[in-house]
Amino acid sequence: MAKQERVAVITGSSRGIGRGIAEQLGKDGYAMVINGYHAADCQETAAELAAEGFTVVAAPGDVSQKSTHEMLVKTAVTNFGRLDTYINNAGIAQIGNLLDESAESFHKIYATNVDSVLFGTQAAAKQFKQQADGEKIRKIINASSIAGHVGYEQLGAYSSTKFAIRGLTQVAAKELAKYGITVNAYCPGIVGTDMWDYIDARMVAENGGTKGQYLKAAIDGISLGRAETPADVADFVSYLASPMSDYMTGQAVQIDGGVQFI
């Protein structure tokens, strides 16, 4: 493929928020590497985006593995000639009380949510430092959460991973600024995706109640009165990926419709 002016890797972009981000960055003129854990879903999403006229390539893989991030960077450079933005979007949720948390499940969520951000940052920064871009700012963008600002009951392990991502974002921003690399995070709220359907179902299983009860209660706490959409998140990520945010680094901004005011 021909060299592109702007190229992004988006982990966890075969569905949900990541898919929404890919849709928006495609409109912004990015060529994109689409990633997901399940190869069939990843390839299907890439094909659908290509049918919409976007420039994409599918690169399925497990983001908890460092080799996957190295592969994603190589895929971007091989297909498009460069890399400009690396979005560590992939993540999973787990429901349960801290006293019942097993070492296995705790390590699993950290591997997917936190290890992936470290490995993605390392792989992207290595490529950015090799590119002869002059004064051009390159971007690393991480997915935290409102649960990375305030911990939520029965989302203890998940909340702690999102706090950890804020810490990694701040440290990476400080260490990479001298290379012309900014590092920021977006912190979504109650997004109407499969993840919140899962959270609602698990809350019912843990605490009783009816399907949709916990999702409705969460939405009722949003000042703007509706669930967040992937497009709401993607609009902000578009800003973080654009030159308009070149003087912003180390921040983890809540984009939640008014759930938390801190």
Rank of each mutant, 00 (worst) to 15 (best):
R202G: 02
A241T: 13
I146C: 02
E175F: 08
V57C: 06
G134I: 00
Q251A: 11
V9H: 04
I262Q: 05
T78L: 06
V56R: 04
T11S: 15
A2L: 13
R166I: 14
H38E: 15
L83M: 06
R166M: 11
I255N: 06
Q24K: 14
D84V: 10
I34P: 01
Y110Q: 10
G156W: 01
K211P: 09
Y198F: 15
Y239I: 12
V233F: 11
E104C: 05
L215D: 06
E206Y: 05
S64P: 03
Q43G: 01
M203F: 15
K3P: 00
G16F: 11
A173R: 04
G212Q: 14
G258V: 03
Y214E: 01
K162P: 05
Q130T: 04
D197F: 05
V259R: 09
A252T: 10
V171I: 14
V204Q: 03
R19L: 15
R15V: 13
V73D: 08
S14Q: 15
M248P: 00
I262T: 07
E175G: 08
G53Y: 09
A40M: 09
A50W: 07
M1K: 01
V114G: 00
A157Q: 05
S160T: 13
I92D: 03
I255L: 06
I181R: 08
D200L: 07
L176M: 08
A47T: 14
G12Y: 09
N97S: 09
A218P: 07
A40P: 05
G208M: 06
G96Q: 02
Q154L: 11
A164Q: 04
E135T: 02
I34T: 07
L83E: 02
A76Y: 06
G96R: 01
Q65V: 10
G20M: 09
R82I: 05
N184V: 12
D133I: 03
I165A: 01
A177V: 10
P230F: 12
D197Y: 07
T249F: 01
S64R: 09
L49M: 15
V253W: 10
G225V: 11
F236A: 08
S242V: 12
A132Q: 08
K216C: 05
F128I: 04
K211D: 10
Q154V: 02
K216T: 15
K129H: 00
P188S: 13
E52A: 14
A47V: 11
A217C: 05
G208Y: 10
I141S: 00
T68K: 08
G120N: 03
R226Q: 13
G209T: 10
T75M: 03
S116K: 04
F261G: 01
E104M: 02
G53Q: 08
R82N: 12
E70C: 03
A31D: 04
G61K: 03
I10A: 04
A22E: 07
E48F: 07
I10Q: 05
E48K: 15
A177Q: 08
G208N: 09
C42A: 14
H69V: 04
F261W: 04
G29T: 10
D200G: 06
E206C: 02
A147N: 15
A46W: 01
Y37K: 13
N142H: 03
I146Y: 03
A172K: 07
I17G: 02
N79S: 11
Y247F: 10
G91K: 13
T45A: 14
G120F: 03
T112K: 00
M71L: 14
G225K: 12
